[in-house]
């Protein structure tokens, strides 16, 4: 993926060609992430437009994405904003997903549990993580 660094660098100078090259190389991956998170083609396309328009509009900014991981993070954040502001996926995630950081802090090799993996990628936790009816308030 380091081959893309050149395109990210060129993009900082306002090169439309660089944006086109980056789109060609990254769009299938970014679109897949957005579709997985949004579960809807139309929404994924809308957020794709936001992501690449933001990439272009902010291309000179000091914190503009400069590699694929940062572009992924931008796409993920924009998907979250789209979901929340449009109230698309009201969630109740399991505590396992919401409290993943150990007391001694986050390290690169801190394990990712299944609930967190699915919450991050799809915005939900596995069915087995849902509270049982008998545990839910008012359903005893």
């Amino acid at each position: 993926m380091s081959v893309m660094m050149k395109e990210f660098e060129k993009l900082k100078f306002g090169s439309k060609d660089a944006l086109a090259e980056l789109y060609t190389k990254t769009a299938p991956h970014i679109y897949a992430l957005l579709f997985r998170r949004l579960a809807n083609e139309e929404d994924a396309q809308t957020v794709m437009k936001i992501v690449y328009a933001t990439l272009w509009t902010n291309c000179h900014a000091a914190d503009a994405p400069s590699n694929l991981n940062e572009l992924r993070a931008l796409a993920h954040r924009e998907a979250i904003k789209y979901i929340v502001t449009n109230n698309l996926q009201p969630q109740t995630l399991s505590p396992n997903a919401l409290t993943p950081i150990p007391p001694d802090g986050l390290k690169p090799n801190t394990p990712v549990n299944d609930d967190l993996r699915q919450a991050y990628l799809e915005g939900r936790t596995p069915p087995s993580s849902k509270p049982k009816k008998s545990q839910m308030k008012g359903n005893i």
Binding site: K16, A20, Y23, A27, P28, H29, Y31, A32, L33, F35, R36, E41, A44, Q45, M48, K49, Y52, A53, W56, T57, N69, R72, A73, H76, I101, L106, P108, T110, V112, L116, R117, Y120, L121
Partner: peptide
């Protein structure tokens, strides 16, 4: 947190966006 979770994205298979989407983006931005 983002850097920690970012590798999870590697497992998602690519999906081609519809043709013409980039043209739409270019029309919007410039």
């Amino acid at each position: 947190i983002e850097a920690w979770l970012a590798p999870l994205n590697e497992q998602t298979p690519d999906k081609m966006p519809p043709a013409g989407l980039f043209d739409d983006i270019m029309r919007e931005i410039s």
